[in-house]
Design a protein around this nucleic acid. Structure first.
Lengths: 192, 192
DNA sequence: GTCTATATTAGGATAGAC
DNA sequence: GTCTATCCTAATATAGAC
């Protein structure tokens, strides 16, 4: 059974998905987690501490499900691996929603907070390179810079789609369609 | 010369670009606009009223500069029109920054605010269709649904690029490169 | 229309009992 | 470890003079 500290972070993840990072209220968090106001300050230094811990918590969960899903399907076709990896971000489950919301919030916050920018830029760089490697598996002859550019167009499109999905501008299904089509368009172009 | 009400909205636009919608403080706004705290409440009902008016103000300015720029260059090649229209969003000027930031903030807020969702969805739809029409000008034989899908991939990519640019993940120049390349990739694919 | 001064409230944080 | 009660500050909003 999860300890109280974890219960609080789980509640915070739900609340962030519902109200955003900047909408998270300590009192509301206490209610959602069914603990007292004071207990939150026992487990975390302050509001920023709750946020840091929760973001890390969400990130760990996300890495786990990405690894698990791709492994579980033990795909051999590199193109399928690329497709499935990107499609993972478009599922209407609490976990994916919470993760995508947190990521969007992080990016939105980074626009006004210099401290976040460096971390976010680094995480983005890693993610772009991972996708570039997947693309290189599909089209082995590709120049690294071309693979990276294509990867950036896909990951950036993915972020845009995610934003539109979560703000109600797009259904999950439409988002899936568009990212799949974009992969096709990019790969046909690279193979030409 | 601009009246005080306008001065306040201009100041709010600058402040939103610097601190975000949710970081806008009335007192700080008063200082930036060089008016008193109380005057803001004379011209606007409350904080939300300031926000509504300012967002509308920013939107009007943006429509104007888009119209003006495309008209000023009186382009005849439809592909150039498409390119220039999308590239307009990537200029490091105060006006474009303020507009893009506001748009990003609007989308981020819409994730947690049902009232905003409808307006935003509508504005997005209009924008997507405009770009779809530009694409149809380049490739006249195209089915409307195919033009719309390509337009959505481009406008959504643009939003993603804009987010990365403003959060420091990408230079303007890199963003311009990537959107231009994406246009090429899409158009070659549609022409095949 | 504009300012200064002040009321009100919300929300983060702490103290102290158990 | 956990709760209740309370404090403190920051930020919104109003009143009233000019």
């Amino acid at each position: 059974m999860a300890d109280r500290r974890t219960v609080i972070m789980e509640a915070a993840a739900r609340l962030i998905a519902r109200r955003g990072v900047r909408g998270l209220r300590i009192e509301e968090l206490a209610a959602e987690a069914e603990v007292s106001n004071g207990l939150i300050y026992y487990h975390f230094k302050d509001r920023a501490g709750v946020l840091r811990a929760t973001l890390e918590f969400i990130n760990d969960r996300a890495e786990r499900y990405t690894r698990d899903h791709v492994a579980a399907e033990h795909l051999s076709d590199p193109r399928r691996v690329l497709e499935q990896t990107l499609l993972l971000e478009f599922q209407d489950t609490a976990e994916v929603r919470e993760n995508s919301t947190a990521w969007g919030e992080l990016r939105a916050s980074a626009m006004f907070d210099d401290l976040l920018r460096a971390d976010l830029a680094e995480a983005t760089k890693v993610w772009d390179q991972e996708v570039a490697d997947l693309i290189a598996d599909v089209v082995p002859s590709l120049a690294p810079s071309a693979a990276l550019a294509a990867a950036q167009r896909l990951t950036t499109l993915l972020e845009g789609l995610s934003g539109r999905w979560l703000s109600g501008g797009l259904t999950v299904d439409r988002a899936r369609e568009l990212i799949l089509a974009a992969i096709t368009v990019e790969l046909t172009h690279l193979a030409k």
